Amino acid sequence: MTEGYFGQRGITDSTSETNAIQFLIRQAMGEVRTGIPVKIIAVHGGGVGAAPTVDVQPVVTQIDGQGNQTPHGIIYGIPVSRSQGGAAGIIMDPVVGDVGHMVISDRDTSALRSNKGDQSNPGSFRMHDPADGVYHGAMLNPVTPNRYINMNGPGITLADEFGNTIITGAAGILINGVLIDRTGKVTAPSDVIANPGNISLVHHVNTDVLHGSDDSGPPKAS
């Protein structure tokens, strides 16, 4: 028995030469990949240093003419885009389970990657291949951030998962959290002013304290 397979051709695609040509054009255009949503399967490297690479799986499945689905396989070693200029950057690497968008280069970039960004010939004649994608960040992520920089305004908020925040506003900068250095001390470069009262930590003199002898115990207020 001969088995048949359902393709993408519609009822009218073979009724005229024009329709047949248009069908062939649509099929060819379907091979042009520009960008696809993907899920992070694994993360390699990252942190303070070069941006990581990721293994991803496209999350929009393939279907045949009858609607039968075929999941995509995993695409390995995709570079991650990072907000960086020279030695300045924001490090926010993706994690396993993130769903994001991958932009696909129109030519083979494997030689370019091997040469660390130096000008290179295409590694092959392949075009619009998901293997030449670049991961560009999260989308459809249901997780609420607990470590972030919020620049929506007014002002800027910098927060972490421990409850520490730095909030800027018209009145100044509000810091919530304990200010410590590695020795556990708080250090100010010149002075600390307490309000209300405009009291200087460096220059304030308490005139209501009586000095005691070496063995008289702590001073007592007059």
Rank of each mutant, 00 (worst) to 15 (best):
1 M>N: 13
2 T>D: 12
6 F>A: 14
9 R>C: 08
10 G>E: 04
11 I>H: 10
14 S>W: 11
14 S>A: 15
15 T>N: 14
15 T>R: 09
21 I>Y: 09
22 Q>M: 10
28 A>S: 07
28 A>Q: 06
31 E>I: 08
35 G>Q: 10
37 P>E: 09
40 I>D: 01
43 V>F: 01
44 H>W: 08
44 H>V: 08
50 A>H: 08
51 A>V: 05
51 A>M: 02
55 D>E: 08
55 D>P: 07
56 V>C: 13
60 V>N: 14
60 V>I: 15
64 D>N: 15
67 G>R: 05
67 G>D: 05
69 Q>M: 07
69 Q>H: 06
70 T>I: 12
79 P>A: 07
83 S>C: 10
88 A>Q: 09
91 I>C: 00
95 V>E: 02
96 V>K: 00
96 V>F: 00
99 V>Y: 00
100 G>L: 06
103 V>A: 15
107 R>K: 03
118 D>T: 04
119 Q>L: 12
119 Q>R: 03
125 F>V: 08
130 P>C: 07
130 P>S: 08
131 A>T: 05
132 D>F: 06
136 H>L: 08
141 N>A: 05
142 P>Y: 03
144 T>M: 13
145 P>Y: 13
147 R>C: 13
147 R>L: 11
149 I>M: 11
152 N>F: 06
152 N>Q: 13
152 N>Y: 07
153 G>D: 03
154 P>L: 13
154 P>M: 14
157 T>W: 03
157 T>K: 06
158 L>V: 15
158 L>F: 13
160 D>E: 04
161 E>A: 13
163 G>I: 01
165 T>L: 02
168 T>R: 05
168 T>P: 05
170 A>R: 14
173 I>R: 06
177 G>D: 01
179 L>R: 02
181 D>A: 02
186 V>M: 15
187 T>I: 04
190 S>W: 00
190 S>L: 00
191 D>M: 02
191 D>R: 01
194 A>P: 01
194 A>E: 06
194 A>Q: 07
197 G>H: 02
205 V>A: 04
208 D>G: 10
213 S>C: 09
213 S>Q: 11
213 S>N: 11
214 D>F: 06
216 S>M: 00
216 S>A: 01
220 K>I: 07
221 A>V: 09
